[in-house]
Each structure stands twice: as structure tokens, then as C-alpha cells.
Simulated assay, not measured.
Amino acid sequence: MPATLAGIRIVEFGGIGPGPFAAMMLADHGAEVIRIERPGASFGPHALARSRKAIGVELKSPQGVEIARALCRDADGLIEGFRPGVMERLGLGPDTLLAGNPRLVYGRMTGWGQDGPLAQAPGHDINYIAVAGLLDGIGTPGAPPVAPVNYVGDFGGGGMLLAFGMVSALLAVKRGAPGQVVDAAMTEGAALLASMSWGFKAAGMWHDGPAANLLSGAAPFYRTYACADGRHVAVGAIEPQFYAALAAGLGEDPDGQMDSAAWPMRAERFAARFATRTRDAWLTHFAPEACVSPVLTFDEAATHSHNTARGTFADGAPAPAPRFTATPAAPPQPSQPGEWTDRVLADLGYDEPQIAALRAAGTIG
């Protein structure tokens, strides 16, 4: 069977981070993604650019803009990650393109959104999750908050949310709705990821600051510990039966799990106990019900028995996810900048002399 999104065509305007991640997810599951880069540009991390039809087009030239418009007239969706107003100044804004293709789903990926006081302000993942309220709770007491790489803003609250928005709007078009703009802001996506924490706050069960809550490191049964060899284990024994198995493995009393006043002292005892053995020795010591896992490096994760059995990684990068039983994703394909330029232009009706003239003018690469 064809992959889930087979038959969907997406035009991606080259960028970095969350936009390419969203396009990668769509391409992984069968969408035809045509990625437009400036001639001579190079991709960012190769995994994010996989499975694309990459072309080199100079969008500062009228001929390049016309190529982009021609692609969008026959596309189902578009993804761009520029600051608000950039695509409009290029003559590629949503009003223009939706006039030529009323069914187009126009995906916009920004940090702050298309409007608001910060819409034109520069920023990166750490700025967006700071304003969303998430960064305050990540880290250890007495130290500044810790940036969780760029997983939360760029990819969880950004690219993944844009991919969800694109698929939702594409489904709406299939049901007869018009094309529309998908305004995906990383600040709002990051805030959405914290929905459960906001629920705790509404119930009076949330405390500001790092390591102040059950799931942020306050509880001794939900945190990481250093072992004798300097490596670490992650403990997630929340349910009483799992905590009982953890306590048994550490030689601790299983009573009083939810006595938060005793958590700091208990965490100190747990830490001292974990420091007496190596990480792997603890893994063989605990029963599976104790919910003790190794904290793995990338290289270790790639060779872990569960990940290899599932095929979680392939060719040095994460494999497509999620899994579909009837319409599985095809293996990711490598993509090189500009490799599809001539073929895509030929599909648009450009002949060889026209393509040669565009290349001589620097319009294509």
C-alpha cells in the first residue's frame, strides 16, 4: 500500500529547525515535498532534509518567484518559516497564493506568531519556552534554569505542531473546506505542551521553580541518579507497586511514598545508595517493575536492544514515526541540494533552452 500521505504535494521554502522538521515528518509518511533553496545553499542537518525533491531557486528574481508560484498553483500545502511579512514582500504571501490555488494549506512557522507585540522580534527556542512559562521549571534549585536542548520549542511545540496543523487543514480541504493559513507559533506550541501542568496549577498542585513538582525532580522516585561509574539511571516509579519494587531494590521502607516533606531526605539516601554501584550493575539488580532505566548517550541508544529490535534508528538518524500497520512509511531517502531542479522545472513545462537560460542568469542552481 502507498504510504499514508501519498498523493499530497507540499512546497517547502528552505529554512532551519522546526519548518524542515515538519516537512520531514510529512515526507517520511509519503508526501511529495519539493524543497526550494537558494542556488548554492547547503542543507542543515541531513536527517531533517531527507526524502525531499530539492531544487535551487533564487526567490529575489522575478523568474524565481514565478517558478515558486507555479509550484504552489498545483500544490496541496506550503511550509515557510520566515519572519512575518517576508513572504508577502517576495510576492508569495497567502493572499496571492490562495487566490491562485484556493485549496492551498499555507503553513507558517514562527517563534512568536504572525501578530502580537513580539511578532517581529528575533528569538530562538530558549526565548520562546521562557515566555511560554516552561523554562522556569527546568533545572535544579539554586541554579539558573537549564535549556533542554531545542527539543521543546523548535520541535515539540514547533515542527510537530505545524505537522499536525498541516494534516488537520489538509483533511478539512478533503471534506470541502477552503484552503487556509496555519499559524504555528513555537511559544504557543510550547505552552500547549504544558497543558497537564496547567491542570495541576488549577487544582492547587503546582509550585513554581525548578525541581519543585513531582514530575520535575522533587520526588525521589521520579528523577535521575549518578552511579559509581559516573553514569546515570532514570527512575520513574510513580505507581505504588512500582515504588515498592524500587524501595525493595534499594533496601528502603516502601511506606510514605507521597509524604512530600520526607522527599528531600529520602532523595539523599537514594542518591547515596545509587552511588555504590555502576549503572549497568543496578540495571541487572532491579526487577523490571522498579522502572529504572539507563540514561543513554546517542551512540548507546542506537545500539540498545529494544531500539534495534524496533528499528528506532536507521542510517544514523531516527527512523520515521509513528508506525502504521496498513500504510507503513518507506525507508528515508537521502536528499542533496538542487538535485531535482531540472526535473521539477521540466514537469512545470520548461524546456532545456529555458532551463539553461535560467541557470545562466543565476535564477536556478
Rank of each mutant, 00 (worst) to 15 (best):
Trp206Gln: 04
Gly159Ala: 04
Gly64Cys: 11
Ser195Met: 12
Gly316Asp: 01
Ala191Thr: 11
Gly14Phe: 03
Phe274Gly: 01
Val233Asn: 03
Pro318Leu: 10
Met205Ile: 13
Ala357Gln: 12
Pro220Ile: 04
Ala143Tyr: 09
Arg50Met: 04
Asp115Ser: 15
Thr303Gly: 05
Pro84Thr: 13
Val233His: 07
Val181Pro: 07
Gly156Met: 12
Leu118Gly: 09
Pro117Asn: 08
Thr341Phe: 08
Gly204Lys: 02
Arg323His: 15
Leu214Gln: 09
Leu134Arg: 04
Pro45Arg: 14
Ala247Asn: 09
Gly236Val: 13
Leu5Arg: 05
Ala219Met: 02
Phe242Leu: 07
Ser195Arg: 08
Ala70Thr: 09
Gly176Trp: 02
Leu171Pro: 13
Gln120His: 15
Pro148His: 05
Ala262Pro: 12
Ile8Arg: 12
Pro320Cys: 10
Arg359Ser: 05
Asp76His: 15
His306Val: 10
Leu215Gln: 03
Pro148Phe: 03
Tyr350Arg: 07
Ala68Ile: 08
Pro220Ala: 01
Gly19Asn: 01
Phe164Glu: 03
Val131Trp: 08
Asp76Met: 07
Gly85Asn: 07
Glu66His: 09
Gly236Asn: 06
Asn101Trp: 02
Ser197Pro: 13
Ala190Ile: 11
Val131Gln: 08
Phe200Cys: 05
Gly133Phe: 06
Arg9Lys: 13
Pro337Tyr: 11
Gly176Ile: 04
Ala248Cys: 09
Val233Gly: 03
Tyr128Val: 10
Ala271Cys: 12
Gly209Asn: 01
Leu134Gln: 06
Ala281Trp: 06
Thr4Asn: 05
Gly349Asp: 02
Pro141Ala: 01
Ala163Tyr: 10
Thr110Tyr: 04
Glu58His: 13
Ala271Tyr: 12
Ala202Phe: 14
Leu161Thr: 15
Leu104Trp: 01
Met1Val: 14
Leu348Met: 14
Ser168Asp: 02
Ala191Trp: 12
Trp282Ala: 04
